[in-house]
Design a protein around this nucleic acid. Structure first.
Lengths: 191, 191
DNA sequence: TGCAAAAATGAACCTATGGTAATAAATTAA
DNA sequence: TTAATTTATTACCATAGGTTCATTTTTGCA
């Protein structure tokens, strides 16, 4: 809870009034490794803020293949953004890769909050700006880079938590098979 | 100009004051086919609104390969979102695929506008929501779909202007070669 | 209208990455 | 600590899609 307040306080002053209102709409949740919050076919429109630990969102195809959309650690937001922002039914799951603590906020509450305290809408708008740039970069990598190049970039961009994440999930984030990633890792060691 | 006003009026009432302020910050520009607005290495932080015609943004590698990030027609926004929202120097170009008319707004002016008229920040926030969902969908397609599946989806999603866009650019949007796309198109006709 | 340039297709060949399966290593649970 | 389970590696074959280069078709403009 305080982690999120600190997160906001980096941007704007938080009055006691706001603080209390925020506390009223936030659900705190502890997750064990492997636990799933939002899962496939749910229709919950929720924002998830990571206080500690590491989570990921992914899509699972009919034939069981997983495709990782996002990883998130401390102070990151993660959600099923397709369900959150469209009327599509959910195809995304979010699972915890470690013990972790998250804060969950219902989107309808968020909407009201924007109206009441427009300064939060500004924070959110700026977040969107950063994320939009990041998503465009991701698309560019997926379009333009080879498997090896994508992996190198991943290592560079995610140094912080690359070690926490199992390789098969990194592979699924890069759009390659675990076997392929293993091959690449072998080559890297050589040189 | 009026096209953009109409676009906004779908969401909020536009007073004469706002209308005039808007007119003050918008540059109108006509483009001929093949003309480039934002190009590689520019540092302009600009929003582009398409009034008529069709544009695309793309990244060109050192060895001359193009990777299309986005297409845009009437009433769409297009920009180099990486330059716009980070401090990275631009690697993206935006070119016009047809004769077209666009409105260009400097990002610094947009920022001021949000402050002065918060209702525009709300519009923008909602735009971001829709776009975020779309970008996530795009990433999912790139991760999970075969070349053929991506093409089928493209045809479905972009029926409106699929015909305007040359196949080699569609290929570069899907992350495949023109030859590959040609192969796929041949197969489609069969069945 | 006709010709140059651009785009699309086609065919032959190649390679990066996928699929499968078996083994080994590491992690978890009991 | 050991057994069970999950993850990573390896090897070998298969294939989707890339590469190259030639040909046809379309487009644009003089």
């Amino acid at each position: 809870m305080n982690e999120l307040l600190d997160y906001f306080k980096k941007n704007i002053p938080i009055s006691l009034e706001i603080e209390n209102k925020l506390k009223g709409i936030i659900k705190e949740k502890r997750l064990i490794k492997g636990e799933t919050i939002l899962s496939d076919n749910s229709v919950k429109k929720e924002h998830v803020f990571v206080v500690s630990g590491c989570l990921r969102s992914f899509y699972k195809t009919e034939n069981g293949k997983e495709h990782t959309i996002q990883f998130a650690i401390k102070n990151w937001w993660i959600s099923d953004y397709i369900t959150l922002y469209t009327d599509n039914k959910s195809v995304i799951s979010i699972e915890s890769l470690t013990h972790s603590k998250v804060l969950i906020i219902d989107n309808s509450k968020v909407e009201k909050f924007y109206k009441e305290f427009p300064q939060f809408e500004t924070i959110q708008r700026k977040n969107f700006e950063k994320r939009t740039a990041a998503l465009h970069k991701r698309i560019l990598s997926l379009l333009a880079l080879s498997a090896t190049e994508k992996y190198n970039q991943f290592i560079k961009d995610y140094t912080d938590f690359e070690k926490i994440i199992p390789n098969y999930q990194i592979a699924s984030y890069l759009g390659i098979t675990p076997q392929s990633l293993s091959r690449i890792r072998k080559e890297r060691i050589k040189t």
